[in-house]
């Protein structure tokens, strides 16, 4: 077990964005997080990566309590993430963007070694040809790959992927899914949020479902998909859904 989330609660004023959520992530698995919009998925990521301090609960990473540590320390311990809304460093080149990840990540490399790592990672995600372009000039799918490259360059043990497939066309989705599989093969544990059902069902070992900040289901993709609670969260009344599917 590499990550353990215990009874995390995060409030914004009167809104409980994450409500008493607990789960564990095993080493080298892909754990998917799904749930309707506003379910608290990204907030949960922000708690794990240190952007928000939870009101209650603990985050244990690699046997160490990291709750409330500043984000840069968590990054250096080996948790990298991508952002749902991409955050490229526009006026820096693609390579420099990735070097930031390598320089300040888990290995805290010097500039020369970081450059080598950046080149390798850019080849891995298929952005090497664009290495010297300013990041602001990339299109959205390329920016998503850049997010991923930056996170990988820090040589994380655990990577949090926040909707890396959203906004991609079917071919790009296929390519990205292959990249994610390769990341897992290289020994990195993956925790990913995704709305694209067929992709996350196919790629995840396990899935947890959030709704209104609470965990409502956890298990293998096929079990989760048939869980009445999950269907209700997505579609409303389960009996109605059953009727519809029977017809």
């Amino acid at each position: 077990m590499i990550l353990k989330v215990e009874n995390i609660t995060k409030r914004f004023g009167g809104l409980v964005a994450v409500n008493n959520v607990s789960f564990e992530v095993n080493e080298k698995e892909i754990l998917g997080i799904i749930g309707p919009n506003g379910a608290g998925k990204t907030t949960l990521f922000n708690v794990i990566s240190g952007i928000y301090k939870p009101e209650k609960g603990k985050v244990i990473f690699d046997g160490k309590d990291i709750t409330g540590l500043p984000p840069f320390k968590i990054a250096r311990l080996g948790i990298a993430r991508t952002h749902q809304i991409v955050k490229p460093l526009n006026e820096l080149t693609v390579k420099e963007n990735v070097m930031v990840g390598a320089c300040f990540g888990r290995e805290y490399l010097d500039l020369d070694s970081a450059e080598k790592v950046a080149e390798d990672v850019l080849k891995f995600v298929g952005l090497y040809e664009k290495a010297d372009l300013l990041a602001g000039k990339l299109n959205v799918p390329e920016k998503k790959r850049l997010e991923l490259a930056r996170a990988l360059a820090s040589k994380p043990k655990l990577i949090l992927l926040d909707e890396v497939l959203a906004g991609l066309n079917p071919v790009e989705v296929m390519e990205m899914v292959e990249v994610i599989k390769k990341i897992r093969e290289s020994g990195v544990t993956i925790l990913m949020i995704e709305h694209l059902m067929h992709a996350i069902m196919q790629i995840s070992d396990r899935i947890i479902v959030l709704d209104y900040g609470q965990k409502i289901a956890e298990g293998k993709p096929e079990d989760v998909a048939n869980d009445p609670k999950v269907i209700e969260a997505y579609l409303g009344d389960p009996e109605l859904v059953l009727k519809l599917t029977k017809r």
Partner: peptide, 21 residues
């Protein structure tokens, strides 16, 4: 490397801190 960190802050401070700066 210090300069790279500074420029990362200039471009997007939130991204910089999650990248470990």
């Amino acid at each position: 490397k210090f300069g790279l960190g500074l420029m990362a802050i200039r471009e997007d401070e939130d991204a910089a801190i999650t990248l470990g700066v």
